[in-house]
Design a protein around this nucleic acid. Structure first.
Length: 887
RNA sequence: AGGCACGUAGCUCAGGGGGAGAGCGCUACCCUGACACGGUAGAAGUCACGAGUUCAAAUCUCGUCGUGCCUACCA
C-alpha cells in the first residue's frame, strides 16, 4: 500500500468509506471502562429518531468529533456517547401519516397496535440519521448507542418520576395549558412559538344587568366571550370607580357576570375593561384564581365548541368566531372592529394555532430544582462558553415556570400512575401495583398520558451511562467534560439536564457547555423548507467530500456568530484539502522507507525554520481547541500548511530534493520533510479525518491509524524542542529580500523567466551574514543569476531598487528598466511612509506619551521611527538618482 | 416592553487599548518537473455615526442609527 504515487487530484468518496469501515472494524472509537488518567466524555445531543441530518446537526457533530479526536490524540480515554431520542409528537405524526396512507388512523388500531407500528417504523427507518452521522465521520462509540425509549432509559424515567412525585416536585393539577388541536396534546410553554399576526380588536358592549348603562370590552378572540365569567377593571381607574357591585349581562349568552377589580388590567389599553375567560386565557385564568371565578370551557379539545357554548355547540372554533361576530352585529353590541397586530402562539411541531386551554395535567415544580442549577453555574461548577449565554441562562432560570410534562399522545413513556377504579386512590410507582394500597382493590387503570420527550432527554447524561445502576461508566465519565449544543435548546435541554443531573447525581452533568451558533444560508437567513434555502449536508458531502465540508464548518464556527453556509465556501476549502493532498504527493515522491526523526545537529536553516514554525502551530492549535476556538485552530493550520509549508518550505528544499546539494543534506532534509508532514497530518486529523488517514497510510514510517498518534505537544511527540526564534527571524530576513525582488519583478512587468543580478547593500552585519550564508535560497526563489551583499555599493547602472528595512536591493536591469515606472513606485512608497512617519513623530514629540506609556512601547516606536527615517532617506536618494538618470 | 448580539476591504468574516488582518472575489503576469482546485505580484478600508475616558480608541464607556435573535401576560 505504501509509496504508491498518489493521484493528481484527491478523490474523497472511496477513501471516506474505506477508512470509516477501518476505524469501526478496529474499534478505534470505543471508550475504555477503566479510568486511564485523562478521561474525556461527551454525550451527543440526541437527534430525533425521525430526523434527517441538517446543517445544524452537521456543525454540532463536527465540533464534537473534532474535540473527541483531538482529545484522543492528546492521550485521553474518550467516550462519545451516541443515540437518538424518541421525539414523541414528531414520531407519532410520522407514523400516523404512514398509516393514513394505508387508510388507517391510530384509533382504529388501538394503542397497543399503534405502539407496535411505531417500533416497527423505528426499526426500519430509525437509524437513517445515525448513518448520516457516520458519513460525517463522527467517531461515536456506536456499540453504546442509546435510545430514549430503551428499557434502561425507561427505567430511569420511571425512577425519576416516582422520586420527584414522592418529593412533591411533580404534581397533577387543573391548569391553563397550551393546547395544540392538531397534535391533540398539551405543550410546554417553551414548545409554543410566538409570531406577530395581523388581527382585529373587537369592541363589544356588555350592558349592565339593571339596564342602566354598559361597559365596552375589547378582545382579539370574540368567540371566547361565550366563556366569560367576569369583566375586570383596574381598581384605580376613575372611569369605573363607582360602579360598585353592579353586574353585567353577557350578550348572546345572557349570563350575569360580575365586574371585578384587578391591578393586572392596563388602564390605557382599549377601554380599560377586560373580559375575563379563565378557561381560555392564561392571564384570565390567573385573575380567575385570584377572584374565585368559575371557569367555563367553551372550546373543546377537538377544536369544536362545547355544549357550554350553547347554540354554537359543535361549531369549529374559527367558524364560531365568524358566527359570534355576526350575532353581535345583529344585536347591535359590536361597537367597532379595528386592525390590531398581536402575537399568537403556534405549535413548534406542526405550526397550528395554539389555544390556551383549561386541562388536567402533570407538572414539575421547577423552582427548587432551578435554584441548584443556578448556583452550579454561579459557583463555576459548570462553565458556559461563550460567556454571553450565561446571562441568558440565568434570565430564564430566574423566571422559570412549572413545566407541563404530560402529553396526550401514545408514543412515549406512559406516566407511571394508576388510579384505583374502586376508591379513586392514585398510586405512583415504578411498576404496576397488584392491588390498591388504600382499599386493596385490583382494578387499577394506568394514566394514559405520556411524558414530554424532553423529560427523558433531561436524564440523558446519566441515563445513557446506565443509571440508576452504579456502573463503571458513570464512575469514569460522569460528569461529562463538555456539552456541545446550539443555543436554541439551551432551555429545552441544557437547563433541564442541569436540574435533573444535580438532583439525581448530586453533580453537574457537564463541566463545560459550549454553545455554538446556528447555520444560516449565505444571506444570513434561517434555513427552512418553506423558504427553500436549505442546503443538504449530504449533498454537500457528495459534491465536495466530507473533509472539505468539515473544515468549512470549523473555519466558520467563530464564537458568538452564526455560520453562513454556501457551497462556494466549501469549494474553497476543498482546494485546501487538495493542496494538502498534492503537498503529500510531492513529499512522498521523495520520502523513502528509512526515514527517521530529524537530527537537531544537522539541520539547514530552512529545516530549523519549518520545524520551529511547526512547533508554534502545534501550540496555537492546542490552545485554540482547549478554548473551543475552532476557527482559530482551523485558520492556523490552513496558514501553516499553505503559506509556510507549501509556499516556502517545499519551494526552498526542491533543489536539495532533486539532488543538487548532495546526498547528506538530502537525507536530513527528507527526514524533516517526512516529520513535518507526519505531525501536520496528526494536527489536521481532528478536522479532516479521512484524507489525513489516507495519506498517513501512504507514508513510510507510520504505524496503524493516525487516530492513535500523539498530538505534537505531548510527551515524546512534543515538537517544542524544535522551537527556534533565531531561525525564524533569520528566515524572515531572507523571505523579505526575496519578496522585495519579486516585487520589483512584478511591478516592472518582468517575465518570470528573466534572470538578473542582485546586490544588497546593508550596514547591518548580522543581516549581511545571514543573506550571504543563505544566498542559495535567494538565488533559487528569486530566480537570479547572481547575488551578493555589500556594505558599500556603487549603484549599478540601470538598476531597479527596493528598500527593505535597513537593506537596499539593487537589481541590475540595464536596458530593461522603465525609469518612469520606477519613479512612480518610489513616489507611492514615499507617500505611504511620510504618513506613517508623521504619526510616529507626533507620538515621540508628545511628552505625555514618553512619560506615561510603558517603556517597551516607547522603545518600539523609537525603533520603528529610526528604521522608517532611514528607509525614507534611502528612498529619496534613490528617487533623485532615478530622476538624474532619466535627465 | 425587556434582554442579548452584531455593524471592519466588493462579499464572508477574524481581531479587540499602542504596527488595520484573512479567505473568496478583483487586476496583471505565468501551464516553472506536487497542485491552474496552481504560482508570483498588486489594487482596495473615515474599522456605522456622535460624544467621553486615556499619553494613546477599530478596541473601553455612554448615546444615536441600522440589522438579527431571544424572552414576555397587554386583552
Amino acid at each position: 500500500m505504501k509509496s504508491g504515487i498518489l493521484d493528481k487530484q484527491y478523490e474523497p468518496h472511496d477513501v471516506e468509506k474505506r477508512w470509516y469501515r477501518f476505524w469501526e472494524e478496529n474499534r478505534l472509537f470505543e471508550a475504555g471502562e477503566e479510568s486511564a488518567g485523562g478521561d474525556y466524555s461527551i454525550v451527543i445531543p440526541p437527534p430525533n429518531v425521525t430526523g434527517v441530518l441538517h446543517m445544524g446537526h452537521a456543525l454540532n457533530n463536527t465540533l464534537q468529533d473534532i474535540l473527541c479526536r483531538y482529545r484522543r490524540l492528546r492521550g485521553d480515554n474518550v467516550l462519545w456517547m451516541p443515540g437518538t431520542d424518541h421525539a414523541g409528537i414528531a414520531t407519532q405524526n410520522v407514523v400516523e401519516k404512514q398509516l393514513a396512507g394505508e387508510g388507517l388512523d391510530r384509533h382504529q388500531l388501538g394503542r397497543e397496535k399503534f405502539i407496535e407500528a411505531v417500533w416497527k417504523w423505528r426499526k426500519e427507518y430509525g437509524s437513517a440519521i445515525i448513518h448520516q452521522l457516520k458519513s460525517l465521520g463522527a467517531s461515536c462509540d456506536w456499540k453504546r448507542e442509546r435510545f430514549t425509549m430503551d428499557e434502561g432509559l425507561s427505567t430511569a424515567v420511571r425512577k425519576v418520576f416516582v422520586q420527584l412525585y414522592n418529593e412533591n416536585l411533580i404534581y397533577r393539577s387543573n391548569y391553563i395549558i397550551n393546547w395544540c388541536h392538531r397534535c391533540h396534546t398539551a405543550l410546554a410553554d417553551l414548545e409554543v412559538e410566538h409570531e406577530i399576526h395581523d388581527g382585529y380588536l373587537y369592541h363589544i358592549r356588555y350592558p349592565f344587568a339593571d339596564g342602566s348603562e354598559s361597559v365596552v370590552v375589547a378582545t382579539t378572540r370574540p368567540e371566547t366571550m361565550l366563556g366569560d365569567t367576569a369583566v375586570a377593571v383596574h381598581p384605580e381607574d376613575d372611569r369605573y370607580c363607582d360602579i360598585g357591585s353592579k353586574t353585567l349581562i353577557l350578550p348572546l349568552v345572557n349570563r350575569e357576570i360580575p365586574i371585578i377589580k384587578d391591578k393586572y388590567v392596563d388602564k390605557l389599553f382599549g377601554t380599560g375593561a377586560l373580559k375575563v375567560t379563565p378557561a381560555h386565557d392564561t392571564n384570565d385564568f390567573e385573575i380567575g384564581v385570584r377572584h374565585q371565578l368559575p371557569s367555563i370551557k367553551v372550546i373543546g379539545d377537538d377544536g369544536k365548541m362545547t355544549s357550554e357554548a350553547g347554540r354554537y355547540v359543535g361549531l369549529d372554533r374559527f367558524a364560531c368566531r365568524e358566527a359570534v361576530i355576526e350575532a353581535l352585529k345583529k344585536e347591535g353590541v359590536l361597537e367597532k372592529i379595528e386592525p390590531h397586530k398581536h402575537s399568537i402562539g403556534h405549535c413548534y411541531r406542526c405550526k397550528t394555532l395554539i389555544e390556551p386551554n383549561l386541562s388536567k395535567q402533570w407538572f414539575v415544580k421547577t423552582k427548587p430544582l432551578a435554584e441548584k442549577a443556578i448556583s452550579a453555574v454561579k459557583e463555576g461548577d459548570t462553565r458556559i462558553v461563550p460567556d454571553m449565554w450565561t446571562k441568558t441562562y440565568f434570565e430564564w432560570m430566574d423566571n422559570i415556570k412549572d413545566w407541563c410534562i404530560s402529553r396526550q399522545i401514545w408514543w412515549g413513556h406512559q406516566i407511571p400512575a394508576w388510579t384505583c377504579q374502586k376508591c379513586e386512590e392514585m398510586i405512583v410507582a415504578m411498576d404496576r401495583p397488584k392491588t390498591c394500597s388504600s382499599c386493596g382493590g385490583d382494578d387499577l387503570v394506568q394514566e394514559t398520558d405520556v411524558l414530554d420527550t424532553w423529560f427523558s432527554s433531561a436524564l440523558w447524561p446519566f441515563s445513557t451511562m446506565g443509571w440508576p445502576e452504579e456502573t463503571p461508566l458513570l464512575k469514569v465519565f460522569y460528569p461529562t467534560s463538555v456539552l456541545v449544543t446550539g443555543f436554541d435548546i439551551l432551555f429545552f435541554w441544557v437547563a433541564r439536564m442541569m436540574m435533573m443531573g444535580l438532583h439525581f447525581m448530586k453533580e453537574v452533568p457537564f463541566k463545560d457547555v459550549y454553545v455554538h451558533a446556528l447555520v444560516r444560508d449565505e444571506n444570513g437567513k434561517k434555513m427552512s423548507k418553506s423558504t427553500g434555502n436549505v442546503i443538504d449536508p449530504i449533498t454537500v458531502i457528495e459534491k465536495y467530500g466530507t473533509d472539505a465540508f468539515r473544515f468549512t464548518l470549523a473555519a466558520f464556527a467563530a464564537q458568538g456568530r452564526d455560520v453562513k453556509m454556501s457551497e462556494k465556501r466549501v469549494d474553497g476549502y476543498r482546494h485546501f484539502v487538495n493542496k494538502l493532498w498534492n503537498a503529500a504527493r510531492f513529499s512522498l515522491m521523495h520520502i523513502d522507507e528509512d526515514v527517521e526523526q530529524p537530527d537537531l545537529d544537522r539541520l539547514s536553516l530552512s529545516d530549523k525554520w519549518i520545524l520551529s514554525s511547526l512547533s508554534r502551530t502545534a501550540n496555537t492549535v492546542a490552545k485554540a481547541l482547549d478554548a473551543y476556538r475552532f476557527n482559530d485552530a482551523a485558520e492556523t493550520l490552513y496558514q501553516f500548511v499553505w503559506h509556510e509549508f507549501c509556499d516556502w518550505y517545499l519551494e526552498m528544499i526542491k533543489p536539495t530534493l532533486y539532488g543538487n546539494r548532495g546526498s547528506d543534506i538530502k537525507k536530513s532534509t527528507v527526514n524533516v520533510l517526512w516529520y513535518v508532514l507526519r505531525e501536520t497530518l496528526i494536527m489536521l486529523h481532528p478536522f479532516i479525518p479521512f484524507i489525513t488517514e489516507e495519506i498517513w497510510h501512504q507514508m513510510p514510517g507510520t504505524e496503524g491509524s493516525v487516530m492513535k498518534a500523539a498530538f505534537p505537544v505531548d510527551g515524546s511527540g512534543d515538537v517544542s524542542i524544535f522551537s527556534d526564534d533565531g531561525a525564524e527571524s533569520e528566515m524572515e530576513v531572507i523571505t523579505e529580500i526575496i519578496s522585495g525582488i519579486r516585487n520589483i519583478r512584478g511591478e516592472m512587468g518582468l517575465s518570470p523567466t528573466l534572470s538578473f543580478d542582485v546586490t544588497v547593500q546593508t550596514n547591518d552585519e548580522a543581516k549581511a551574514k545571514v543573506l550571504q550564508q543563505h544566498q542559495d535560497i535567494i538565488l533559487n526563489l528569486a530566480k537570479l543569476n547572481a547575488f551578493s551583499v555589500k556594505r558599500q555599493v556603487k549603484r549599478p547602472k540601470g538598476a531597479a531598487t527596493a528598500v527593505i528595512g535597513s537593506a537596499t536591493i539593487f537589481a541590475s536591469l540595464e536596458g530593461i528598466i522603465d525609469f518612469a515606472k520606477e519613479a512612480a513606485r518610489f513616489e507611492k512608497e514615499i507617500g505611504k511612509l511620510t504618513h506613517e512617519l508623521v504619526v510616529l513623530s507626533n507620538k515621540l514629540n508628545n511628552e505625555d506619551f514618553l512619560k506615561k506609556a510603558p517603556a517597551h512601547v516607547v522603545e518600539r516606536v523609537k525603533e520603528k521611527h529610526t528604521i522608517l527615517v532611514e528607509k525614507d532617506q534611502k528612498l529619496r536618494t534613490n528617487l533623485s538618482r532615478i530622476k538624474e538618470a532619466q535627465a
